[in-house]
Design a protein around this nucleic acid. Structure first.
Length: 714
RNA sequence: GCCACUUUAGCUCAGCGGUAGAGCGAUGCUUUCGUAAAGCAUAGGUCCAGGGUUCAAAUCCCUGAAGUGGCUCCA
């Protein structure tokens, strides 16, 4: 006797098990027609599954009650679309082995193993889409049926798809010895079928339109040593119009892409000859970066930081102490070996690979490798260990902390000196895999707005708070609020952390408390902390929806110990300080990339490479244009004048494309009255004329305030 | 690093075995103009690099580089 509670609180009693479809019919014929699935106690299910016990039930339709598109409906639609796409692909390439095909936030994919002789290519997309259309037109029902686990497994094994067998075994391991569910698109046994947990829409025609988006390679179980699969991405909507709108939005987003805008506005350049992932800041982009640095530097002075400067390399010894070398060698550039050592080694006929091994100090491993290769005990490990002493060299710094630690350690400290806050716009280099590089957001050389704070354990909460207030100030000034905050805590079951649990508890509490003061949502994520301490990360999304970590505040108990740091406490005994690493914006490169997309290139005046452009209406007004330009330039404004012989319409068009905040149109009338006609970025019409001196004064004020909006108006 | 795609003038792209093209930009001339492109002309090319097939390659094949979308990674 299930009692069904509807979202409006109404309750419907039924005599026996009832399906979602029957419930919808009871409510109304129109609803039954529109229904795609049901939500039973927050779990999305097929319309045809019987509900036998009391439950809260809502019927899922494409349009949600608030008029938007229901997320649950899209989930059903895209999950079903994945099946349709897979069937379409198997019609074209019958040997394709299906692996796993889930819906995502905004699209879906299917991981598929294609035979080496017949990989899937983009040129197949049109044919797949044709087949999808045909399957949708056939309007076959999604039919669920269950098979006892043993029967299901043996059937999958007969089909010879080890991936599906694995999926089934995993499902059984998670759910006990429950039956396995299959979905046929049509009649079981007669039509296409797939092992699947569901749920699905009632029939294929309910998925209106499918578009294949892209191909990528993926790894089985996400393990790069396992089988390589082809991931086919697609998108589905109930109508072509929605798909068109989606494609239009995608195009609009890509026009905001920092790589596109960076090219148009000439903000930065990446040169193949200089190297991939290495950013060359052009004059225009250099201004933005410089303004940001100045802004941050001013705040650092207010917060009691000292600025330090350190070189781009350091001795290998330094990084052996810090643990960066050779532990993280895969993400670092290879060491720079001193010329004397290099000469000595090459005189010995040492290959590059051998050299690498010796530099890493894994001499005994090298010896065993060589001995294995020659089949003889020709090299005694300790001989190579002795050779190891020869190696001296440097590393491009992957982090600034070792240098800063050495600055801290260069003089004795009393507890009265703490906290010591050392800041540097320090450039670091990391070896990123070539496939990872991405415009400004993932690069191989970048400048961190880095600082290291050395403090007592009691000072940690207050210092973490100080770091966050800086982040909040800058993000607030720039009007950025599209970020989320992640508090990374220690791995609850792992032993992957250093320091003692009591220290961690205090530090984690300090991080959570500090995050709470930010006034934005944050998540606590166990296992996301660094092994040396908890951390707070700021994560933003780019226009394509990818997440990038910007700033980070990390508490570190390990490095002070490794470097033997100490201060003299009030008890006149030495104590180990706690270190806080913090880079509120992470890297200036990545931050500028995000900033470009945030403003779509239309920067506030204080950041704009070109703040004002003077447009004389003809060459007759060139002299007055020069007067205006000089007045602004003397006031410290970045200003140019367009003295070409274009008409003013053309000059406006050109300047508008560069997203210059203010355009000053000047003609004889202005020259006579000492005025400028102000055109404000983003406005369709001239805002009117005002005295030149008033414009200069008010613009100066806007820039000094770092105003996020354009405020000067006649 | 892996898979797919892309690479032609400063930029955006067309050409896809038979003499290298367009628009924008640049430069020059004409126009001297009051708010999102005035007109005309000129210059500009290792068709990513290197090999191969062919009478003939930007175009077809191989190798490599760089870029894009994902995967894996990100102290």
């Amino acid at each position: 006797m299930p009692l069904i509670t509807l979202p409006d609180g109404k309750q419907l009693p039924f005599d026996g098990p009832v399906t979602g479809r029957q419930i919808a019919e009871k409510i109304g014929a129109r609803l039954a027609k529109d229904a795609l699935g049901v939500k039973v106690n927050d779990e999305v299910q097929d319309l045809s599954r019987p509900i036998a016990v009391d439950a809260r039930v809502s019927v899922i339709t494409y349009k949600s009650r608030d008029g938007g598109i229901s997320r649950d409906a899209l989930f059903l639609l895209r999950h079903s679309a994945a099946h349709i796409m897979a069937e379409a692909i198997q019609r074209i390439i019958p040997e394709a082995q299906l692996v796993y095909g889930p819906p995502l936030e905004d699209k879906f994919y299917y991981d598929i193993r294609f035979p080496d002789s017949r990989p899937l290519r983009e040129s197949d997309f049109a044919a797949i889409e044709d087949q999808c259309r045909a399957i949708i037109a056939e309007d076959r029902p999604f039919t669920r049926y269950e098979v006892a686990s043993a029967d299901g497994l043996s059937r999958l094994e007969r089909e010879g798809n080890k991936y599906k067998v694995d999926n089934a075994k995993r499902a059984l391991a998670a759910a006990g010895d429950a039956p396995l569910s299959f979905y046929a698109t049509g009649t079981p046994g007669a039509n296409w079928e797939d092992l699947c947990r569901g749920p699905h829409v009632p029939s294929t025609a309910r998925v209106g339109v499918i578009k294949i988006l892209s191909l990528a390679s993926s790894f089985w179980h996400g393990d790069e040593n396992s089988d390589r699969l082809t991931r086919v991405y697609g998108i589905a909507f109930s109508s072509q119009a929605e798909l068109d709108e989606y494609m239009r939005q995608k195009e609009e987003a890509s026009a905001r892409d920092h790589r596109v805008i960076g090219g148009k506005l000439r903000l930065f350049h990446i040169d193949e000859t200089v190297g991939q992932g290495l950013i060359l800041w052009t004059p225009a982009g250099g201004i933005i970066r410089d303004q940001l640095q100045k802004f941050i530097s001013e705040e650092l002075v207010k917060q009691g930081y000292y600025q330090v400067f350190t070189p781009h390399i350091g001795r290998l010894e330094l990084y052996k102490t810090s643990g960066h070398f050779p532990y993280y060698k895969d993400s670092q550039f290879a060491p720079i070996i001193e010329r004397d050592a290099l000469a000595e080694l090459s005189a010995q006929g040492c290959s590059c690979a051998d050299m690498m091994h010796r530099v890493e100090g894994v001499a005994s491993k090298l010896a065993s490798t060589i001995n294995q290769r020659t089949g003889k005990e020709t090299i005694a490990p300790d001989r190579i260990v002795a050779d190891d002493k020869l190696i001296e060299g440097f590393m491009l710094k992957p982090m600034n902390c070792p240098h800063h630690i050495k600055i801290f350690d260069s003089s004795p400290h009393s507890y009265r000196d703490l906290p010591v806050r050392l800041a540097e716009f320090g450039t670091v280099y990391r070896w990123e895999q070539s496939g990872e590089l991405n415009g400004l957001t993932r690069v191989r050389g970048f400048t961190q707005d880095d600082a290291h704070l050395f403090c007592t354990e009691d000072q940690v909460p207050q210092e973490v708070m100080g770091c966050l207030s800086l982040v909040k100030l800058v993000l607030g000034t720039l009007g950025m609020n599209n970020y989320r905050v992640r508090v990374g805590l220690r791995d609850p079951d792992g032993k992957k952390f250093a320091g003692n649990p009591a220290q961690w508890d205090k530090a984690e509490a300090a991080c959570v408390a500090a995050a709470r003061t930010l006034g934005v949502p944050f998540t606590e994520e166990p296992g996301e902390g660094a092994f040396y301490g908890p951390k707070i990360d700021f994560v933003v999304k780019d226009v394509i929806g990818r997440e990038w970590q910007l700033g980070t505040v990390q508490i570190d108990y390990v490095l002070p110990v490794r470097f033997g740091l100490s201060y003299i406490g009030s008890d006149n005994k030495p104590h180990v300080p706690v270190m806080i690493h913090r880079a509120p914006f992470g890297s200036l490169e990545r931050f500028c990339g995000v900033l470009i997309e945030h403003f779509a290139g239309a920067f506030p005046t204080w950041l704009s490479p070109e703040q004002v452009r003077v447009l004389p209406i003809s060459e007759k007004s060139s002299d007055y244009a020069a007067t205006v330009q000089n007045a602004l330039r003397n006031a410290g404004v970045r200003v140019s004048a367009d003295l070409g012989n274009d008409r003013v319409q053309g000059k406006i068009k050109a300047a508008a494309e560069l997203k210059i905040p203010y355009l000053l149109v000047v003609g004889p009338r202005d020259a006579e009255n000492n005025t400028v006609s102000v055109r404000i970025r983003g406005e369709e019409k001239d805002a009117g004329a005002m005295p030149l001196s008033a414009f200069v004064d008010r613009l100066k004020a806007e820039i000094a305030d770092r105003s996020a909006t354009l405020t000067v108006r006649p």
